[in-house]
Design a protein around this nucleic acid. Structure first.
Length: 354
DNA sequence: CACTCGTGGAT
DNA sequence: TATCCAAGAGT
């Protein structure tokens, strides 16, 4: 029994709460908009606050309500999400918005929220607590870390989750559960950080068992992860004489699903065979895009060519320069574009490159 | 349960 | 440069 009290954390939160675009300040009795809470929580899944801020502002400016978002075009939303990663979130975001709009609003219970696309245990609990002030047990990476340290639990994740959740449940207060949920996350983000935690100024420093044992910095323990293999691929960046780009919308399922990109080979651990989308004078761009995904490193070789607009293969399309924005592309495709454009602007050097 | 699924900043 | 990591969900 560590003796940690939710009241002590809330007192700290009342003074030190971060000011965030989706957040209602503590103590003012204001009510958070479920739409904004939901949108921010989905964006924040495995994503830093710094990366989310501008996306959140842009989305809520373009689509101020869930009904506005539900009425948006799929490709428009995917383009706005470009660069934020985990694109299944954007696909599920639209499905969820349309379900909520059809139902006339967000469900106000964890169970109801859990039935919606893209809302899992964490997000359901977070919306339930923050938007509806219910005493849900919010378990995310921050809470896991704080609990592991507070109770000096050395069991490695993910196996330790049930044990950590039990500790979190015992601490969750009936009063101000929404503020409490955000307080634990602020504590984890600003004081009880993964590396070099600032235990000296922690509101829970007295009851923290890991601090007493000097083990805080090493917790939570985690099972080692697999090494990332290297995959190889070729992408073909083609442009017509009038400046249109040859592109594809990737299939809904799988990596970068639903996003725009350059046609090319599959990405495999073996060296790829050339597979141009149409015949043209493809030449080596003289550079490769390197990009690291969650579970593999990619080395993407690039080919560039001027192409004939009259023969666009099935499944591909020509995007006029006026409609083309690199910021609408996932990062690896934007990297490929930057390198390919550089190669197109300096023609005639390929024989000297290698 | 183990794996897929992005990205950029910190170290 | 390489690794870790961040308000996880879906299969």
């Amino acid at each position: 029994m560590s003796g940690a009290r939710a009241e002590d954390l809330l007192e700290w939160y009342d003074v030190h709460a971060r000011v965030l675009p989706w957040r209602v300040p503590p103590g003012a009795g204001l009510r958070a908009d479920p739409y904004r809470v939901w949108l921010s929580e989905v964006m924040l899944q495995q994503t830093t606050v710094a990366a989310v801020k501008d996306y959140f502002t842009r989305f809520t400016t373009l689509w101020p309500t869930v009904d506005d978002l539900a009425a948006a075009e799929d490709e428009r939303v995917m383009a706005e999400w470009a660069g934020l990663g985990y694109y299944a979130r954007a696909r599920n975001l639209l499905k969820c918005a349309r379900a909520v709009a059809a139902a006339g609003g967000f469900p106000d219970t964890e169970a109801g929220l859990m039935e919606l696309p893209g809302i899992g245990p964490y997000t359901a609990a977070a919306i339930s607590a923050i938007a509806f002030n219910r005493p849900s047990v919010v378990m995310d990476g921050n809470v896991e870390r704080v609990m592991a340290r507070l109770f000096d639990i050395h069991t490695p994740l993910p196996g330790a989750k049930p044990e950590l959740k039990a500790k979190a449940a015992a601490l969750t207060p009936a009063m101000r559960p929404g503020d409490y949920a955000q307080a634990v996350m602020d504590l984890g983000a600003t004081i009880c950080t993964p590396r070099s935690p600032a235990c000296g100024i922690c509101p829970w420093r007295a009851p923290c068992l890991a601090r007493a044992h000097g083990t805080a910095a090493g917790l939570p323990a985690k099972t080692p992860k697999k090494a990332k293999p290297v995959r190889f691929g070729i992408a073909y960046v083609g442009r017509t004489p009038s400046g249109e780009w040859l592109m594809e919308r990737r299939p809904e399922q799988g990596l970068l699903g639903g996003m725009m990109g350059w046609p090319g080979t599959v990405w495999a651990e073996e060296a790829p065979a050339e597979a141009p989308p149409l015949s043209a004078d493809w030449r080596d761009a003289g550079a490769e895009a390197r990009h690291t995904f969650t579970h593999f490193h990619l080395r993407l070789f690039l080919r560039v060519a001027e192409i004939d607009p009259g023969r666009v293969p099935e499944g591909l399309r020509l995007v006029p320069a006026s409609d083309f924005r690199p910021s609408d592309l996932p990062t690896v495709m934007r990297k490929a574009f930057d390198l390919a454009r550089g190669a197109m602007e300096t023609p005639g050097q390929r024989k000297d490159d290698t």
